[in-house]
């Protein structure tokens, strides 16, 4: 039986990481999810739709991986499941964006379920653009069966 996740990790933040949003990465993401919209592949189509550059599909933000704030926390990955995910966008991500990512642990709690006690970790990731403006906030809740 795994130990509970230590709540003292709440507030822990990852070291900021700068990542570039590349058009090839957007195209491969659109291909993987099976979204055929040409605005994710063709700059002319993106401009015709009113975007200054190729935009990214909404959940593309997941492929911008921050330094993992769970580093150093003992987690049984076989027992971990993604429970909830949310995004708030100020604007869509665009090819050419340089985004600074920081991930924080927002909450750690346990809950008794049908199959026993489960541990929850809530992580919040922010993405700021080169001008310092917040582009999006992503919140992930993962559950670990004990």
């Amino acid at each position: 039986m795994a130990a509970p996740i230590d709540p003292r990790f709440v507030g822990k933040a990852s070291a900021p990481l700068e990542v570039d949003v590349e058009r090839g990465q957007i195209r491969r993401f659109a291909e993987a999810i099976g979204d055929a919209d040409p605005i994710y592949r063709d700059e002319a189509a993106a401009r015709a739709a009113g975007y200054p550059a190729i935009p990214a599909p909404p959940t593309f933000a997941t492929s911008l991986r921050p330094n993992d704030v769970r580093e150093g926390i003992d987690i049984d990955w076989k027992k971990l499941l993604h429970a909830e995910q949310s995004y708030r966008f100020a604007r869509p991500l665009l090819a050419g964006d340089r985004i600074t990512l920081v991930q924080r642990i927002a909450a750690i709690y346990e809950k008794a379920g049908k199959s026993g006690v489960m541990d929850f970790i809530v992580m919040e990731t922010t993405g700021h653009d080169a001008g310092g403006a917040l582009v999006y906030t992503a919140t992930s809740t993962v559950v670990i069966k004990r």
């Binding site: 999810i33 099976g34 979204d35 919209d37 605005i39 739709a49 009113g50 975007y51 935009p55 990214a56 599909p57 909404p58 959940t59 909830e84 995910q85 949310s86 995004y87 708030r88 966008f89 604007r91 869509p92």
Partner: peptide, 23 residues
């Protein structure tokens, strides 16, 4: 969730108007 993002982007004619997505 990406499929739901695709649905929303289709409705909007692109991802731009999607302000929040929760699953």
């Amino acid at each position: 969730m990406a499929f739901l993002g695709e649905l929303c982007a289709r409705v909007c004619g692109g991802p731009g108007p999607v302000r929040e997505l929760k699953v």
